[in-house]
Design a protein around this nucleic acid. Structure first.
Lengths: 238, 238
DNA sequence: CCAATAGTGTCTATCAGACAGTATCGA
DNA sequence: TCGATACTGTCTGATAGACACTATTGG
């Protein structure tokens, strides 16, 4: 290790930012995007994010931006799963300067309403498919793709779908989270068997709920406390 | 998005580095560490790494450090699997200045010999268990733990074990890679059945090889080209 | 009544765990 | 010969896929 390589006086200066892929399941899997006001990419859609502050950890910056830019109430952050996704560090990914950005993945059961008068006012939900078909700013299409892939993979071997389904949900809703995220349909009976047979996946409440389209009232469940799904939920081929 | 947040003239400057967790399987799962010459942590063991240069991507920096600090010949990099692990950005992880480090995970089939007269001269292989029991510099114990966890998980659902077993290997050697990485023993017959039944995992060569401890000559295999293992290789509980 | 959703039961193919048994090397 | 490793075969239990059937709601 040559000495100059760690010399604090000669280090090459970088800007470090966080970008957040906030996903939720409505009808389709959707991502929260903000409209850029200034160049470059003025008017284009971008992931919410911003600079890491000098005395703040990268993870703290991600949590702060969640509150500032997405309108998630600080109290609601409890129910939102937030994890580090990957770091993007191509030299010219931002045309103005050298910026290294650490992307985070957030899975939110609710759709926080953009709050007028705040940074979050420019935010709105866009179906992922639509977002990737349009032109996102910077390399945010690549980041979004990585986020969606991570979410899809994690539904296989963790109980994270319960984070997307909300604090309370029916098995039908939980199945819809899987189907919207994976973009395929699952056998109802087999899905139920798998979920109920996996210890710690879901916990039954005493209540039942009637869906919007009628049908028999469904039992209401809560997340079961477990984290891992072994063996994993199988994902169909096509 | 407030305008000052992206003002190139007011951004908080950070140093960005890469740290590399190079793993190989000898008798035990081992990691390449370098002895630090200067404070802080002078004399302590650390992961190889260094600054990202101003015109270099973070991934390129990782590849460059692999060559400069680990003694892997540039040509041998072909056979080494290198992937981004995670980014560590606590404010005081380096006591001298604000450093954000992106960790990479490298899986190498060979043990590159430290080359005298280069940065790699200070490098040597240490069993992972031993490395974690000692005192690594900075937050490198945390980074190493993350690397080992990633490697263990990836052996389950990818064919990456073939990267650790080398360009050519016997099924016994491949099984040893799993056992050393997971720290458990597997049923020989079931392991063989799983590996051979998975398309694209291994490809048979015409040759056979006799092991060090005698025994019948084993068929020699090459990596089979596939990436994913579906369904995954099951990992025993204890 | 019908449409739609919730919930249950069952048959079958697949696959992992366990273990027995044979074959082939070096010493 | 023995010890060690390579390789094959088989039984069993667990589980996923497919599908049929019943139950309960709203309209």
């Amino acid at each position: 290790m040559t000495s100059n390589r760690y010399d604090p006086h000669t280090f090459p200066p970088f800007a470090v930012t966080v970008d957040i892929v906030v996903l939720t399941v409505d009808d389709a899997l959707s991502v929260l995007l903000v409209e850029r006001g200034a160049d470059p990419f003025a008017g284009a859609l971008a992931l919410p994010g911003g600079f890491v502050l000098p005395d703040e950890s990268v993870a703290d910056a991600a949590r702060r931006e969640m509150v500032e830019e997405t309108g998630v109430a600080e109290a609601d952050l409890e129910g939102v799963h937030l994890e580090q996704l990957a770091t993007f560090g191509e030299p010219h990914r931002d045309p103005r300067m050298r910026v290294v950005s650490t992307a985070y993945l957030a899975l939110s059961p609710v759709k926080p309403e953009p709050i007028p008068g705040t940074d979050a006012a420019a935010a709105h939900w866009v179906p992922v498919q639509e977002a990737l078909a349009g032109n996102l700013a910077f390399d945010h299409a690549e980041i979004l793709t990585a986020g969606v892939e991570r979410a899809r993979a994690k539904l296989e071997y963790t109980t994270l779908a319960t984070s997307l389904a909300g604090p309370e949900f029916t098995l039908g809703e939980l199945q819809h989270v899987y189907e919207a995220t994976w973009g395929c349909s699952l056998e109802r009976a087999n899905f139920r068997r798998k979920v109920l047979a996996t210890r710690g996946f879901v916990a039954k409440t005493r209540r039942r709920r009637v869906g919007e389209a009628g049908g028999a009232p469904a039992a209401v469940y809560r997340p079961g406390g477990g984290e891992l799904l072994v063996p994993p939920m199988m994902r169909p081929k096509p």
